[in-house]
Design a protein around this nucleic acid. Sequence first.
DNA 1: CAGTGTGAAGTTGTTCACAGCA
DNA 2: TGCTGTGAACAACTTCACACTG
Lengths: 224, 224
Amino acid sequence: MKNEKNKKMPETNIPEPTVRRMPSYLSHLKILKSKGELYVSAPQIAKNLNLEATQVTKDLSYTKIVGKTRVGYEISELITVLSEFLGFHQIKDAFLVGAGNLGEALIKYEGFKDFGLKIVAAFDINEKIVGKKIVGVDILHLDEFRNLAEKMNVVLGIITTPASEAQSVADLMVGWGIKAIWNFSPTTIKVPEGVIVQNTSIYSNLAVIFNKLNNQFLQQEQTI
Amino acid sequence: MKNEKNKKMPETNIPEPTVRRMPSYLSHLKILKSKGELYVSAPQIAKNLNLEATQVTKDLSYTKIVGKTRVGYEISELITVLSEFLGFHQIKDAFLVGAGNLGEALIKYEGFKDFGLKIVAAFDINEKIVGKKIVGVDILHLDEFRNLAEKMNVVLGIITTPASEAQSVADLMVGWGIKAIWNFSPTTIKVPEGVIVQNTSIYSNLAVIFNKLNNQFLQQEQTI
DNA sequence: CAGTGTGAAGTTGTTCACAGCA
DNA sequence: TGCTGTGAACAACTTCACACTG
């Protein structure tokens, strides 16, 4: 699996938690900009997003942006830097497989384009929805996927099928040379090394919420 | 069990990453069970879910389940233990605000009931959808929320509104005494201490994917 | 042996402490 | 003084090493 002992590479990798926080910085900055603000400091961002100021500073330090002492960062510049850093500035085409409720919601999702993603086609096997269009995106039969994928320059595949279909769809995507898979099904999928998989399991979030609720409840019991 | 740091109470808190992985164990176990399997070992689970065996062992050790040497864990028992541990065994009622595309997808989402969640009502302000029913769930006007919340025993609020509305909806929910908020809007919301917030930003996942894609690309360039 | 279970080591991420700056 | 920026201390999480078990 992981046999790369020789870490000679520069390893520009920045902490994943930092990467996860960056989009929320970006969203927040865009709101500030729309309000006419020009500068923002790390402590301000931290306060607004319920974070520690030093964490914001450290996160931003991974980009090459420099702030002005006692003033903060120039908002427009920070937006540009973060967008480029995250790769949101250049639009990447994606295919989506599984045009059910969740798939439809994603296709309709406003704002993906601001974050560098464009769903160019969707696929399903359900004859009731194949042939339809959702906000301009064609729902095609899965069989058509192969040819299209070769013609177009699509790096990302989104899986919004039921769990039972996820692995076989992933296999198809890998066969078509897709570089990254965003898996919304509640199954973990297996792919060859070199293909990126991002599992977005909604149940993980539920588990965290319930666990916190439970801990809080237990603590209350104890303090009584 | 452990008592080295006797400054505070035992504090049953288990690592959040562990909690996040548990639902995928559960899903996987259910599939195995449906295939008629009776026992499974940690290395097997690890292999299927692309994890390290010791990690699975450690994760499972936070529950009180004991495995049989050379055999593994009894699948049915493990499912029960994990479900209870995560609080998925008892159904919790939830309100959802923002019955747009994503909201509708969540309302229709099969399987929430298997994971302890039931959306009992949804709210919106859009007159076009207020009054409708989605798979048996009423879409009510936001104004009705207050009264209902008091009558029913709802602990969880789900926000699927646009970013601009998220904070005010959160404030309403807090006012109604909701204990935990699951926020799907791309904004970070602020709540008083004691209220649990789980932000599920779809953009964080995008950022991680793009960042990995980018790293891979850079590494390829270097190795050439 | 092939598995569980767990303290200890190792790695990663966060927070602190402080230097420098306007 | 209020902020940036960063090395160092600290905490959280993962992986290792090994004792134990049928």
